[in-house]
Amino acid sequence: MQINITFNGTAQTSDVEPRQLLVDYIRGTGATGTHIGCDTTSCGACTVLVDGTPMKSCTMFAVQANGKSITTVEGLKQNGDLHQIQASFKEKHGLQCGFCTPGMMLTSAALLEENPDPSEDEIRWAISGNICRCTGYINIVKAVQHAGEQLRNS
C-alpha cells in the first residue's frame, strides 16, 4: 500500500505491506535511532512522536502513519543544533548505555511542550512507559528539569 508520511519534516512516499510495523519501516529507511527493546509493547525504546504525541512504534503499523507527521530522535536536531533536551541529557549525564535514550528524549520533549515546568513527580509519571535499565532515572529526571529551565529562560 502507498503511504505518505512527513518524516522528520520531509514529505515521503513509500510502498509498504500492511503488516509492516512502523518501527521496522523507520529503521529500514536508515534512521536507526529508534530502537527495538522488547518488541512486546513494554519498554518504550521504540517511542516516536506521531503528530507530536509519543507512541510505541512497535505497536503501530506503518500504514497507520499515512497522512501523519512522524518525529524520531534524528528529527530533534534543528538547523544542525542539538535540541535542548539532547543538550541537557548530555550535560546532566542522563544516559549510560544509551539504548533507552531516544525514546526517553522524545517522551520528555513532548512533556515539556505540554508542561514547561513539570515537578519531579510529573516527570517520573510522564516517563513511566520508558524503561531504563542503567541510570536509575535520577540523571534522566535532572536532565528533563534542566531542559525545562533552559527552555523557559530562552
Partner: peptide, 9 residues
C-alpha cells in the same frame, strides 16, 4: 490503565 505511551493510543 497501562503506561502513558499506551494511554496515548
Amino acid at each position: 490503565v497501562a503506561d502513558p505511551l499506551v494511554r496515548n493510543r
